[in-house]
Every structure is written in structure tokens, then in C-alpha cells.
Design a binder for these strands. Sequence first.
RNA 1: GGGCUCGUAGCUCAGUCAGGCAGAGCGUCUGGCUUUUAACCAGACGGCCUAGGGUUCAAAUCCCUACGAGCCCGCCA
Length: 533
Amino acid sequence: MKTMAQITHWADVTAGEALKLSNKHLVATGITPSGHIHIGNMREVVTADAAFRALLGKGADAELIYIADTFDPLRKVYPFLPESYAEHVGKPLSQVPCPCGECKNYADHFLKPFFGALEKLGIRPKVYLADELYKSGAYTQAIKTALAKRDEIANIIDEVTHKTTADDWSPFNPICTGCGKINTTKVTGFDADAETVDYTCSCGHSGTVPMSGGGKLTWRVDWPARWGILGVTVEPFGKDHASRGGSYDTGKRISREIYGYKTPYPIVYEWIMLGKKGAMSSSTGVVVSISDMLKVVPAEVLRYLIIRTKPEKHIQFDPALPLLNLVDEYEKLHYKTEITEYESTVIKLSHASGICHTDIPFKHMVTIYQAARGDIDRIMKIVARAGYNTDNEKCIRELAENVGNWLEMYAPPFAKFSVQEEVPVHAATLTGVQKAFLSAFSNIINESGELTGEDYHNLVYSAKEADSKLHSAIVQMPGVGAGELEIDPKDMFKAIYISILGQQSGPKAGWFLSSLEKDFLVRRFMDASTYKP
RNA sequence: GGGCUCGUAGCUCAGUCAGGCAGAGCGUCUGGCUUUUAACCAGACGGCCUAGGGUUCAAAUCCCUACGAGCCCGCCA
């Protein structure tokens, strides 16, 4: 039986295994920018970064790279694209126009926000764009080899996948110079010396393209070719590539038998499931984009979500209330004074440099934000009164923005409250004692100077003390029996919440009241005490 | 059809590689903070470790079978 203190974090296990093979490592990660890059994709990058950091932590000579598959074809007209994109289906993403018209191309449109997110997550890989790699000639030698060993490669694929590749199959897909598409061409021949490939296209065009930039290797060959070209030694990938007969299986053999390169150490990771909706996927529309998430939670919490779970376990992700618990858990871990080695590793791996911290818990801000009705000046006042550090206003603003976005985008109804414009109809349920309390409470507040949260709090509780000013005021109200009157502060709190929010409960009453205008409270409590439906 | 991964408290998951008393956080309940109902603290409740078989002095852990969830064998992480 192992105790928590003895558990080794998965990233350290991976790094340890990798170090047995070599001290120099290139951790690779890659995503096809065919649509909005979502939380699921983020797992790939964060997993790679974790392995990278763990390697550095163990003294390895390590590098992290990211390859954007910008040369892959546009598969179909995705739901978020206009119908006019039908003509671009089949063209490499780097040659398809940008949907917003402001980026260099289609791939760039989705990569830009993704790189922004990487920056926030504290991940700084060396970036390669696949189309540039091909155009630079980096792949040329690998393409020549693949074309020359076409039959061997086809054999490997047939053996591993138990399928039969077509007779006209080629590891290389030329881009038609006529229609610009990459998935409609057939290779008819090649010239190793001139480094060119001949093809025909279903559009009727035929011609010759250079190996550098004139097309790309098919995925199952591209991947192992890339390992050798860049020197990849560690790579995380989704479980889709990992199963028997999948591209890692064929890649392993192609890498070894065709390119003579040792297979990178694999990190297979599971999918992120969104609530009860199932796996995250661009095509089914079950998607939460990374940029959306970063509007809502600090980057470190997002890292923590992935770091704390072993890659082979699926992650149940729910941006509603469970997200709040996640944030809470992370904050607690972060401020814990005595931590185990395991926890220390988790914190290190979750850390994103350049992120500012406030000492205000996310959950608390959820209440402050709503009490302040989203007004930043009021938020700052409440925060100061609550005794938090207000030196870093920018940080607090960021947190407040996150919370505001969360409330708007994901918060479940019961986490929300709003100060009602008029006396809520629920005031009809107030008892005689509650009304008497509200009336007396209103008078006393009116006569007092500025009250602090604690003052309000103590004032409410004083209602049960027979010799208090509030208690005698209540007893003297018409309709309330004098003499032995038992007052339960709980009912008084309820009366307060009903008059202001129209609900039975609410945020801690003292400072909640102190965050609202005094005049408003005086008027509202009086109105509620005389409420007639 | 063939294969991969996962299944542990109401929820999210450690623990499985290397067998040795069933664990944590959240939630719930109770109490405390010489009285803050959504911030704090303590305690309690909570389990056929998906089911069945096998190996073993000993199984959540190893082996076999079944069931459930997700995925792959066609370029969706």
C-alpha cells in the first residue's frame, strides 16, 4: 500500500522512463487547426508541456515543439462556415481564405487565438507550420524514400490494419496546380533526381509538382517521417491514434523499417468529456474553446485540470458548478502551507508564469460581483472593506471579469442572485414578526451613521436580546404581542433576503448589506414591511 | 467482426505497474468559532472497489469471463 507521499506524478514517471533511453529529448505536439481549438486539444499541449517540464526538472536537455498541420486539407464545410466554403474543401488549410478576412489564411485564423492561449498557459514551444516545413524542403528526402519504398509501406499498412491499400495508392498527395486541391490527385510517377512528382487530378488537370511544397505525405507516413526529420523522442497523442491498427502502430513500423528511426516514447491520453454531453468534438458541436475557458478561469486552473489526472483517464469537465469546485481545490492547494512532494509537483506543473494572483477566492468574488452588480468601483470598495489586499487592482479586475463571464456563460441559476428593482412579490409570505423586524430595522439603520458589515450583522442578532433597542422596537410594533417574544435570527435573515433578493437565503448578510446603499436599504425594508399584494 | 482504454463513497478521483487493514477532496449531517445561513475550524455519516470465477497464507491490485462507458481498425486530440 502506498501513501500519498510516495506516489510519483505521471509526468515524472514519463520523464524517468524517457531518461533511461537518452538524456536529450525533443517533446513534440501537434494539432490540425481545422476549427476552433478546444479544451480537448489543450490536453495534448499541456500534457506535452508537463512531460517537458518534468524532463527539465530531472536535468535533461529537453526542447518542446509544436507542429501546426497547416498543410492538411479542409475536410468539409463545417457548421460554422458559410456554404461558399464548399469550393475550398480539399485545399490545404494554409491555402484556404480566412473566415474573418483578417488573417493570412484559414489555419492562421484558428492558430492566432490558440497561440494567445498558449502564452497565457505558460507554454512556449518552438512552433513549426507544416506548410512551411514542406515548402522549405525539409521533407524532400523523406518523400523520395517514401515514393521509392511505396510497396513496402503499403505492405506495412495492410499488415497492421488488415486492409488492402488501393493499387493506385501513394504515400504522397500532390496539390493540383489547376484546382488547388490535395485530396483529388493520383500520383502517376516521380523523378528522384529532379525531385518532382507527376499526377492527374479528378478535375481533369494533370501535371508535375516539386517534392518541396508541391504536396504532402499522407498522415500515416507524414507522422513517422516527421519524427526522423525533427528528432522527436517523446510525443503525446490521443487514444484514436493509439489503438491497435491505428497510426501509431503503422508509424512505429514505418519509422523503424523505412526511415531507420527509433519510435518516440508515447504518452496516450484520453478525451475530455463535456458534462453529460459526451466527448468534446468539433464535428458534433460539443465544444468549449480554450479562449472561452480562459475568459472564465485563470490559466493555472485549466492546467491543473489536466495535470492532476493521469493521461489515460478521461476527464469529466463541467463548466458550471463543478468548475467552481475545481477552482476552489486549486486555490486551497496553492495556499496550503504543508504539502507533500506529490502536491508540490502538481503545483509546479500547473504553474503558468506571468500570471497574477490575488488572495480573493473565486467563490467569494462570485458573491461580491453580484452584490456590486458588476460595477468595478463598487467591487474594489467591497474588496477593500473585506480586508483583502488591493495593491494589484489589475489582478482583481481580471478575476472580476472572469467571474462576470462565468456568471453570464455557465453559472447555474441557484448560484445567481440579483438585487430586485422593486419589492419582490415573495414579501407576501412575510410573517407579522418579520414585518415588524424589517420596519424597526429600517428605522434604526436610518438613524445610524455608516454601518460596517459587522455592525449590520450584530444588529440583526441583537433582535433576540430582550434589552436591545431593536427588540423593544419590534415588540412595540402594532400586531406583535408584547411580553415574551422569542425571536429567531434565522427568520430575520430570511426576511432580509426576501425583501432584497426575493429568495430565502443569500450571501453572508453583514457585508452583503454593507455593500448596498444605505438609503436603498432603509426604503426597501420599510416598503417590504408594509407590502400588500 | 477484431482491438484499445476506463469502471473504487452522493460527485470528482488517488491507490492497480511492484498483491499486505479501503483512501482524499467536494457534498451531506452535527458541533465550534463567548452569534456572519454561499468565506473559517473540528467530528461524523458514507463502499458487495461493476458482476462472476480462478491463482495465492493474503486480491481493488495478477489471470479468465461477462456487463457498462468511451474510442480505434477510413487523417476528428
